[in-house]
């Protein structure tokens, strides 16, 4: 595999995915250089609860993404409840209240598609546990623009529908259990290059 240097990670999940995120935190380097953007299907009235919860679980900075804010490395962003979150080409965020996509706002597809355009082959996109098909069009877009895609192994996911839908598109590069995703991120975010595939598989 070619050595690529990544500039951002986008993660999408629904039911059960917050717990998976917390598990992934333990694998992340202390000095994270990239932004990680995590879209979870929040309740429309969540008022910063997710940010607060995630902040307690990691030393990394966790923030609610703000409209037209410049995206900074070393930060984990989540969208505000009831808004779609999009990435602009100048690496700022935009929000929208466009129709729900696959019954969801924020939508994983909307984030992934815009991030794919902004970071193209420098993007990693991950689909975690969840009970909807959101994220599958997003994975297609990331794949189309040259990014790397990962799905949580459905056998291990609390709700396998979402990672399975992503895998069914044929656009997923790696299917990994949570620990495998963690080790993969650790390896490539540490030096920002894709680790040898063998190394990751060894920990599966």
């Amino acid at each position: 595999m070619n050595v690529q240097s990544f500039k951002a990670v986008v993660i999408g999940g629904s039911a059960g995915s917050t717990e998976v995120m917390v598990k992934l935190f333990s694998y992340l380097p202390e000095r994270l250089e990239l932004p990680i953007i995590f879209v979870n299907h929040l309740h429309p009235e969540d008022d910063g609860g997710l940010v607060e919860y995630l902040s307690c679980q990691t030393a990394l900075r966790v923030e609610e993404a703000a409209d037209k804010e410049h995206i900074e490395g070393g930060t984990i962003y989540v969208p505000p409840a009831d808004y779609h979150l999009l990435v602009e080409s100048d690496l700022t965020f935009s929000l929208s209240i466009d129709r729900k996509v696959k019954y969801s706002r924020p939508s994983i597809d909307v984030l992934f598609e815009s991030a794919a355009m902004a970071w193209n082959d420098r993007l990693i996109g991950i689909v975690l546990t969840g009970a909807s098909h959101d994220g599958s069009d997003g994975v297609r877009a990331i794949h189309k623009y040259g990014g790397l895609t990962i799905a949580q192994n459905p056998d291990e996911a609390t709700y396998p529908i979402m990672p399975q839908a992503a895998i069914t598109t044929g656009c997923v590069d790696k299917i990994l259990p949570v620990a495998g995703i963690g080790l993969f991120l650790q390896a490539c975010l540490g030096h920002n290059t894709v680790p040898e595939l063998k190394k990751v598989n060894a920990h599966d």
Binding site: L86, E88, S89, S94, S96, D98, E113, S114, M117
Partner: peptide
């Protein structure tokens, strides 16, 4: 207009 939304539309 911010491009990401309009491009999607």
């Amino acid at each position: 207009y911010a491009r990401a939304s309009i491009r999607r539309r």
